[in-house]
């Protein structure tokens, strides 16, 4: 379980290991959004929604397993 947890944690930081600097280009990207740090709020919102959906799916799965056991 501990190993799985560490593996999960590491998957989230894998991209920070890239050392190359971004090339400067005139194309407009959302640099301001990221520099002000508020993109984390968006990620937080999306994550809450998705984790909620996942928990919902797991609970449906669990309830089904119970039903299946009862009707065996």
């Amino acid at each position: 379980m501990k190993k799985i947890f560490i593996l999960c944690l590491l998957t989230f930081v894998v991209q920070w290991t890239f050392a190359q600097a971004p090339t400067a280009a005139p194309v407009e990207m959302a640099d301001l959004l990221r520099s002000s740090g508020k993109i984390y709020v968006v990620i937080g919102t999306i994550s809450v929604v998705f984790i909620g959906l996942a928990i919902y799916l797991f609970s449906i799965d669990k309830r089904l397993s119970k039903l299946e056991k009862e009707h065996k």
Partner: peptide, 25 residues
């Protein structure tokens, strides 16, 4: 599956992407 999608939600917004015209972010 849940962990991989969560990873893509997180890193998909935080990761660096190529700078392209028209497409932008």
């Amino acid at each position: 599956g849940v962990v991989l999608v969560l990873f893509s939600l997180f890193q998909g917004l935080m990761g660096r992407v190529p700078v392209l015209p028209i497409l932008h972010e």
